[in-house]
């Protein structure tokens, strides 16, 4: 891994290319992320870099965390995330910024998807539904259908896809192209959409 950042979804817009193409973009506030801790295989059994994002006032941080931040010599931050096997040349206390990416790079974005509540199988698992609305039938259109056999096995198999809570889960979208970078604003423009609401925390990793 050669580049990673934490960020926040700001919203969506579109930009135009010179030949008139319109590209839908997600605007992301990415970084600056202080390096809070570096774990090594000698000390911790694996290599990783811990990044922080978004400053918070001192009073919002508890004592153990305060000590953690003081050790790195940085202002308290709201979010901490570890990235395994991240190759960087910077030291603890320094900042990772959007300049580690370039236009045209492909990235992977992980965040929590929008919660959809309790949903049926048609929306949740892309089932086709059971029946038609004609021939005297009207209430089976979005039904799940049979959930198994009868006396054998006399039970429903584990993991059978049914209705239930949908969304609000960690979701990753790969191969998102960086269309533009605005370093003064710490902003990335990615082609297409990313999971989650506005102001959701995003993990952006270079592929």
């Amino acid at each position: 891994m050669t580049g990673a950042l934490l960020g926040k979804k700001l919203g969506m817009t579109s930009i135009y290319t010179d030949n008139g193409e319109q590209i839908p973009c997600t605007v992301i506030q990415a970084g600056p992320c202080p390096i809070v801790q570096m774990k090594t295989s000698g000390n911790d059994g694996y290599n990783s870099v811990q990044l922080g994002f978004e400053n918070v006032p001192d009073r919002k941080v508890n004592k153990p965390l305060k000590g953690h931040f003081a050790k790195a010599g940085i202002e308290p931050v709201k979010y901490l995330k570890e990235f395994r096997d991240l190759e960087i040349t910077l030291n603890i206390g320094e900042f990772l910024k959007v300049d580690q990416f370039q236009k045209g790079d492909k990235v992977r974005v992980t965040s929590t998807s929008k919660g959809k509540g309790f949903q049926g199988v048609v929306k949740r698992h892309h089932f086709g539904g059971v029946g038609m609305t004609t021939h005297g039938q009207s209430d089976r259109v979005r039904a799940p259908g049979s959930i198994g056999s009868s006396s054998y096995p006399s039970r429903v198999f584990k993991g059978l896809r049914m209705a239930g809570r949908m969304g609000g889960k960690p979701t990753t979208i790969r191969n998102l192209e960086i269309v533009d970078i605005i370093p003064e604003q710490n902003v990335l423009l990615l082609k297409g959409n990313v999971p989650g609401y506005k102001n959701t925390l995003l993990e952006i990793v270079k592929q």
Binding site: G11, T13, S14, I15, Q185, V187
Partner: peptide, 19 residues
Amino acid sequence: MNQMTLIESMVKERAVDIR
């Protein structure tokens, strides 16, 4: 949200610049 408005106006300016 304020920053989003700023980015929007920047993007708009750029579209006008192309023209």
